[in-house]
Simulated assay, not measured.
Amino acid sequence: MKNLKKTRRIQILAVAGVALALSTALIGYGMRDGINFFRAPSQVLAEPPKPGEVFRLGGLVETGTLVRGQGEEITFKVTDGGASVPVKFTGVLPDLFGEGKGMVGTGEMQGETFIAREILAKHDENYMPKEVTDALKEQGVYRDPAKPEG
Rank of each mutant, 00 (worst) to 15 (best):
A19E: 01
T133V: 15
T24P: 02
A40F: 01
G52K: 03
P51Q: 06
K5R: 12
L136P: 01
P129T: 08
K88Y: 06
G28S: 04
R117N: 13
E73T: 15
Q139D: 06
G59P: 03
L66G: 08
A14G: 08
I115S: 07
F37Y: 04
Y127K: 02
G81E: 01
E53S: 11
L120F: 05
G82S: 09
Q43N: 05
G98R: 11
V132S: 02
G140Q: 06
V78C: 05
E73F: 03
P145Q: 02
K101P: 00
T106N: 01
T79P: 00
E125M: 13
A121P: 05
G91M: 03
P129R: 07
L60M: 10
A83T: 03
T75P: 02
R39K: 11
L4I: 15
V54K: 11
I27M: 10
R39A: 04
L60V: 11
K5P: 05
G28N: 11
V78P: 00
G82Y: 00
F55M: 09
G58D: 06
G34Q: 13
H123R: 14
T79E: 02
I12L: 10
L60Y: 02
G100E: 03
V78K: 00
P41T: 06
T133E: 15
L45F: 00
P48H: 13
V78M: 06
M109Q: 04
Q11C: 10
T7E: 04
G30M: 08
K5Y: 13
G52H: 04
N126Q: 12
S84V: 04
Y127F: 15
Y142F: 14
I35S: 07
G34W: 15
A46V: 09
E72N: 15
Q11W: 10
H123I: 13
P48T: 11
F76G: 06
F76V: 01
G91I: 01
D134N: 11
G69D: 02
S23M: 15
G98F: 04
T7R: 12
E118R: 14
R8W: 12
S23K: 02
S42F: 04
V104L: 04
F38V: 07
Y29F: 05
N126Y: 12
G58V: 10
S42K: 03
G71R: 10
E62I: 00
G58L: 10
L57V: 03
G150F: 12
M128W: 12
V44Q: 03
V54C: 02
Q139Y: 04
